[in-house]
């Protein structure tokens, strides 16, 4: 080994020590209080339920069988309904979020630059308030006797005195409300980079506004749309607060199923299995985001 290598090695060791001193306390904190706990939770998913909700040995796949609906009393579709509702709700609310966010982002990108920052802020500000309070706001608006519920009653959309809340509809509305900013921001980033020459060219060649949209506008904003979709659908899939508050007992989603297993239902392994499913969905979302990361160019970083 040459003299140069010795010097460099010594220097590198010194720098490694510096790196560890600065990074280790925080990194250890995250490791001990998040990585270890979630690893523990994942291991619980493979244990046996001990009656009082305490996981026990031996290792089994019972929890997953439970999640699929197999219990003491044979198969029941309850859990699968919940899973299905989670998927259904996140897909429906994603679709609605896109319908609202797309024109909004487009409009913001058309305004003067100085105005755009304020408009984006206006979209984000409501999400700074607590989730519980936001859901509570909707409870106020949708409960029986309020103008909205009365209107829906008169139009024959709901039974008398039922109100719009609690219901699956209220959950969907809550999800759309909650996740709208997550779609507007990446979409706006895509619209900001829109190449208007392409739109002009398309308009010259095709004339129909609808065709212009599908040929020139939509493909250019697709990366933002996809990024936003991941940012909306994945967290919506694991949502807990909104179905708990705005939905009744029959509007439960996966998050509620998981939470109840650690509370009144007392089946930790089953809850852990549900949590594992959520983590897998998150992982899938991250992989998709990463794949698109290069094409996106930082659109996702704006979302906090």
């Amino acid at each position: 080994m040459s003299q140069v290598d010795v010097v460099w090695r010594r220097r590198r060791r010194r720098e490694t020590r510096h790196l560890l001193v600065s990074v280790l306390p925080g990194a250890l904190w995250i490791f001990i209080f998040l990585v270890l706990p979630s690893a523990y939770l994942m291991s619980v998913a493979f244990m046996t339920n001990g009656g009082f909700g305490q996981p026990q040995m031996p290792l089994t796949l019972d929890a997953f069988r439970n999640l699929a609906g197999f219990g003491f009393l044979g198969w029941s579709p309850g859990n699968l309904y919940t899973l299905w509702r989670s998927i259904f709700q996140s897909v429906i609310s994603l679709g609605l979020v896109v319908l609202v966010a797309y024109p909004v982002a487009w409009y913001i990108s058309m305004c003067r630059p100085r105005l755009r920052a304020i408009m984006l802020l206006a979209v984000v500000v409501p999400s700074w308030t607590n989730q519980v309070i936001r859901a509570f706001g909707w409870m106020n608006l949708l409960s029986p006797g309020t103008p909205l519920s009365t209107l829906a009653e008169k139009m024959g959309l709901i039974a008398p005195n039922m109100g719009l809340f609690p219901s699956d509809f209220a959950v969907t509305l809550g999800l759309v409300y909650n996740f709208l900013p997550f779609m507007v921001l990446p979409l706006y980033a895509a619209f900001e980079k829109l190449d208007h020459a392409q739109i002009e060219a398309a308009r010259d060649l095709y004339a129909s506004p609808l065709r212009t949209f599908f040929v020139a506008v939509l493909p250019q904003t697709l990366p933002g749309l996809l990024a936003g979709s991941v940012l909306v659908a994945i967290p919506a899939f694991g949502m807990y607060v909104i179905p708990e508050l705005l939905g009744g007992g029959r509007s439960q989603m996966l998050g509620n199923l998981v939470a109840s297993q650690f509370g009144e239902a007392a089946n930790w392994p089953l809850g852990a299995a549900g949590a594992l499913l959520m983590l897998l969905a998150t992982l899938l979302g991250l992989v998709i985001l990463r794949r698109m990361g290069r094409r996106l160019g930082g659109g996702t970083e704006m979302v906090i």
Binding site: L34, S38, Y40, L41, G238, A259, W268, A275, L279
Partner: peptide
């Protein structure tokens, strides 16, 4: 990136 329900429950169980 961790879903907050998983975050919270992991910590609680731990």
């Amino acid at each position: 990136v961790m879903p907050d329900i998983v975050f919270g429950i992991s910590d609680m169980a731990f």
